[in-house]
Simulated assay, not measured.
Amino acid sequence: MSASLASGPPPHLPTHPPTTALRQRLAELRGPTVAPQPLDARALAALAANPGCRRRALLDGAGVNKAVLANALGSPSGFGQSQFAFMRGNAFEAKVKADGGAELLRLLAPDRPEDAAVSTPDLSAAGPEGRAARTALALREATESDGWTFLDHPMLALEVAGSPVYLEPDAVVVAPDGRWTVIEIKSFPMIDAAADAAKVGAAARQSAVYVLALERVAARTTGASVHDRVLLVCPKDFSNLPTASVVDVRKQLSVTRRQLTRLTRIEEIAETLPEGTTFDPGLPKEELKEAVEQVEAAYAPECLAACELAFHCRGRSREAGAVETLGRSVRGELGGLRTVDAVLAAARGVAGDPDDPTVAALRRAAALRSEALGGAAC
């Protein structure tokens, strides 16, 4: 397992807290009686995967519960984990963290002497800000020591689009040489040492967010380095025994860092909204739809696996006949043709510049289709 030394804070991620005025504005957007929904690493990874979606950036930054909002709009998301899966995941995590993380350390460093001391600092503090500060202090103290340190559910801070986000990885281990490793525990199985590729990919994107947040702390800690490979711990085959795999997150880390810098600052989006705009789920459905439509979305089919508002945005995209409903790759191939009707008109030869390569390709494809179907028009 190799490590990459953090040489400085992630670029273009500011460290100043949001102003009181912005906090008040975001509270108005949520609704006067609605508690904020905190961002987690999974949501942040999904946000980074679609940085052009101003709607998600604002709703997540304001702490709007998108699942509740989707229900109020009449387009429930179907997101969430069953109670059984939730309980099973918690039981598995407790099992692998028992005895001060002894099993995790065995999986991470099988050559470590069994009698080697392990420090498990208390990370409790008041509020997420206090817990993040306590975690940073514990990481610095662990790096200065010459032993192993196991941090259970540390709290990390990262600023995204001008708003602070607090993240809680399953665990972080500090080695005697000052290396920090993120531990991600999942309840999906590894069968014959392999797990579902889509689930591993999602875990890698989530872990990359933790690594990015850790880099900020490491940049202020002498001798600290952060692994760009994380330890993914899952049940082995069909048992409840833990097994582990090292996952390289360098690609996900690079993409996440780049995408987060592209996010428009939340206050800039909020300033474009009419005074009094709110996403309070208690509003009548039509008023709520009007408020949501005030913020531009960037729908793509991939949103269905990552955003609670995807069904609502897909419906609106289909109503508008937007080519984005066909996928980002298709959208990229169609150039300036933005609607399905415009694409069909260009293919039929009733619209579009015949010298445009995209239009020419569409007409050629339509001719081939017509020939194959015996003259049937598209």
Results as ranks from 00 to 15, higher is better:
Ala109Thr: 07
Arg112Trp: 02
Pro113Arg: 00
Ala117Ser: 11
Val118Gln: 12
Thr120Lys: 07
Asp122Tyr: 01
Leu123Val: 06
Ser124Gln: 14
Gly127Ser: 05
Pro128Thr: 08
Pro128Ala: 12
Glu129Thr: 06
Gly130Pro: 07
Gly130Asn: 08
Arg131Trp: 08
Ala133Thr: 09
Thr135Ala: 03
Ala136Ser: 12
Ala136His: 06
Leu137Asn: 13
Glu144Gln: 12
Ser145Lys: 02
Asp146Pro: 05
Trp148Asn: 13
Trp148Ser: 10
Leu151Ala: 10
Leu151Ile: 08
Asp152Gln: 10
His153Ser: 14
Met155Phe: 01
Leu158Gly: 04
Leu158Cys: 11
Glu159Thr: 14
Val160Asp: 13
Gly162Arg: 03
Gly162Ile: 09
Gly162Pro: 15
Val165Ser: 11
Tyr166Trp: 08
Tyr166Ser: 04
Tyr166Leu: 04
Leu167Trp: 02
Leu167Met: 09
Glu168Gln: 14
Pro169Met: 08
Ala171His: 09
Val172Gly: 14
Val173Thr: 15
Val174Trp: 02
Val174Ala: 15
Pro176Tyr: 07
Pro176Glu: 14
Asp177Met: 02
Gly178Gln: 08
Thr181Gly: 04
Ile183Cys: 13
Glu184Gln: 11
Glu184Gly: 02
Lys186Gly: 04
Lys186Phe: 01
Ser187Ile: 01
Ser187Tyr: 05
Phe188Gln: 11
Pro189Gly: 03
Met190His: 13
Asp192Phe: 02
Ala194Pro: 02
Ala195Pro: 13
Ala195Trp: 03
Lys199Arg: 07
Gly201Phe: 07
Ala202Tyr: 00
Ala203His: 01
Ala204Met: 10
Tyr210Ile: 13
